[in-house]
Write a protein that binds this DNA or RNA. Structure first.
Lengths: 240, 240
DNA sequence: ACCATCCATCTTGCATGCACGAAGATCACT
DNA sequence: AGTGATCTTCGTGCATGCAAGATGGATGGT
């Protein structure tokens, strides 16, 4: 059963993870040879992995000039958030109608954990549970294509949500919004669930300017020739 | 300016086009060597193109077993339509607020053409103009990421919309729905534009059973070893 | 006649090699 | 010294080669 994974796929996943986790900053040059010996292969599978990532928008390959981690400007990030809001909104809408009793129980459990961790006060820990909360709703939509699509957009945004963290009171607000969403979901109110989730994800009003001004665009200094995946940036953070 | 395109990218585009246009039916095996000589290259760029298509969900590569054009079952198609509805809905919402006067004029012009062609009665010709109509709205959203994302989902669905064509009265209904959307857009009513567009795209009620029962799953006969991109299926058709 | 096993063949996955083109350095010239 | 052209160097794009694994058919057994 365990379908064998080719090297190129492994590398693609590893690199995507590096990018999402912020270990590979936007602008970093991805040198084929360097990656090849980092993974102990030849350049061929490396190239295939890079092509896959390029097709998904994680890296950009300029002919004869190599691949770099895609850097999104403020505008593009906001554009993706607009998409994210409707996708997650749809997840919530569908979940309100389709979640099984077991899934509803899961949702409640994860939500309770979120509340606990929010009270505990560590945004990083909360972040992980927050992710699980949203994942439960993706799954609750019972729409695999949607689940994948939403996750993909989420991943593309992830480098830009980190650092938005630690915003005063954001965690508390987040759980409160979750709470409203959970209520709508359990009551089976698709319209309200969708609306609330859209608001939860969307960046509007004060949140917008807060987000923009706090958003330190993660970017590798173009000056230093970037030793391809140098330092571990670490620290996941957001609080959405 | 004209950035040079590598062979692998050219081939990826060509193959994607074959798939979207129905020239490469779901289930068709994509033989690397055959494609290589079809494009006059070695297998290497072919493989890179296939990897890109796989990353976008157009083909599936099973290790050691080659690439086949992805075939979606009824369920997956409906799932994608659910996504499509909210994405196009968002396009319409944003377009209602953001379209420039020039874009509004474009919209009206294309819509008028749609009406004319609908009256003329050839669904295939109407289909092309219908696509342009939706493209104008994508562009009107002024959200590039959304534009690309929406187009991508549209392309993935395209093989399954063909054959849904020629459904009695569908063209007339389509233009009528367009008309309502146009009105909402020009009046600058985002909520109504979104709702109407969602309904226009979504498959609900009678349309659902009509769609499902009429949807001949395009599929290459697994019996015949498929001479890789054999016949031109042609005939674009839908009427959405 | 049916089924399992083995073998031949073919295709893929990856490594290696080569050539074109781009970026940076050197040099000439104003 | 500053600016431009030339040259060098390096990395990418693609071709080719080889080995592991998968498919299909033949073979042998029950």
């Amino acid at each position: 059963m365990a379908l064998p994974e080719t090297r190129s796929e492994q590398m693609a996943r590893a690199l995507e993870d590096d990018i999402c986790a912020g270990r590979a900053l936007p602008g970093v040059r991805l040198d084929e040879q360097v990656l090849a010996q980092r993974f102990g292969t030849s350049r061929t599978p490396v190239r295939e992995a890079l092509k896959m990532l390029a097709a998904q928008g994680f890296v950009e390959i300029r002919p004869r000039q190599g691949a770099v981690v895609v850097g999104l400007d403020v505008r593009q990030v906001l554009e993706l958030f607009e998409i994210m809001a409707v996708l997650e909104g749809l997840c919530a809408r569908l979940a309100a109608r389709r979640m099984t009793p077991a899934e509803r129980a899961d949702l409640l459990a994860v939500h309770a954990e979120c509340q606990r961790l929010a009270a505990a006060g560590d945004p990083d820990v909360y972040y992980a549970m927050n992710t699980r909360f949203h994942e439960v709703i993706y799954a609750g939509s019972h729409n695999r294509q949607l689940e994948e699509e939403t996750r993909r957009v989420r991943n593309r945004l992830s480098p830009y949500r980190r650092n938005q963290l630690h915003q005063l009171g954001r965690v508390a607000k987040s759980v409160q919004e979750h709470d409203d969403v959970v209520r709508a979901l359990l009551e089976g109110d698709p319209d309200r669930a969708e609306t609330l989730m859209r608001r939860h994800i969307g960046i509007q009003g004060d949140s917008l300017s807060d987000f923009v001004s706090n958003m330190s665009m993660p970017q590798a200094a173009p000056a230093s020739p970037q030793p391809a995946l140098a330092g571990a940036l670490s620290r996941p953070t957001i609080v959405r």
